[in-house]
């Protein structure tokens, strides 16, 4: 739970999902999801397509609504209350598979948009932060270019910087490298690994098992809407206990 100042302490639970269910119409897409993420923990979620992994992390910042169960982020319960949703979104950053950069704004304008309009920062301060993060993701000279002029890998790194400019406590990644050409995957994964090494709490949906092994504290395997198995990378990859896990791992680790 959060302490008196509202900040979560290292090691405490920063995300809790308790008995979360979600339906699309009559189809149940999340079944009794129970998950706890500690501050500073790195969770990698994997599973076949349609397993609900993207839906689950999108519930965390209310891009999707859950119908039953409880979701508590940084001590705030996620309900339809707009105040709660706004507060949670300020603390949770999200990186999308399709980057979703704003094409009509320059890279710099993409980065300062939210700090200026949501955190109400002065523009100069926001720009300083933005340039700092552009350096961190190693593209400081692209500040005045438009997203359409950048490569896929560069765009995704800008997207990561854009989320970081809001100084979130948690970063969610929804298949961040799936839309990239192979030669650009590494530059994005490198940025994510650096982020992890600095202690960022991360929940990442990905197929990159090498990344999971390097950085992940917990691997969560989902199938058909439920969490089937979870464990440390060493345990899960070497000794999967569940048949469905074994099947999935055999398919993606084959090559």
């Amino acid at each position: 739970m959060a302490d008196a100042t509202g900040e979560t302490q290292a090691g405490q639970q920063i995300i809790e999902l308790r008995h979360v269910d979600k339906w699309y119409g009559e189809f149940q897409v999340l079944k009794d999801i129970n998950l706890e993420v500690a501050k500073g923990e790195r969770v990698v979620v994997c599973g076949p397509s349609g397993s609900g992994k993207s839906t689950m992390i999108r519930c965390i910042n209310r891009l999707e609504e859950h119908q039953r169960g409880q979701i508590i982020v940084a001590g705030i319960e996620l309900t339809s209350d707009i105040k709660n949703i706004d507060a949670i979104r300020r603390e949770v950053g999200m990186v999308f598979q399709q980057f979703n950069l704003f094409p009509h704004l320059t890279v710099l304008e993409n980065l300062v948009l939210a700090p200026v309009w949501v955190r109400k920062q002065p523009r100069r301060e926001a720009e300083e932060t933005a340039r700092m993060y552009l350096e961190r993701v190693r593209i400081p000279d692209q500040a005045n270019k438009y997203p359409g002029q950048l490569s896929g890998g560069q765009q995704q790194r800008v997207a990561i910087a854009r989320s970081l400019c809001m100084k979130p406590e948690i970063m969610l990644f929804d298949e961040p490298t799936s839309a990239l050409d192979p030669e650009m995957i590494k530059e994005v994964l490198d940025v994510m690994i650096e982020l992890a090494q600095e202690g960022m709490t991360m929940v990442c949906v990905t197929h990159e098992m090498g990344f999971a092994r390097t950085v992940g504290d917990t691997i969560v395997f989902m199938d058909r809407g439920e969490i089937v198995e979870r464990g440390s990378p060493q345990e899960l990859f070497a000794n999967p206990k569940n048949d469905r896990t074994k099947l999935f791992l055999s398919q993606i680790l084959a090559h």
């Binding site: 979104r89 999308f96 809001m166």
Partner: peptide, 12 residues
Amino acid sequence: GQSEAASALGLR
């Protein structure tokens, strides 16, 4: 995805 990214950043 554009409105989703904006919402995820906290924009109303």
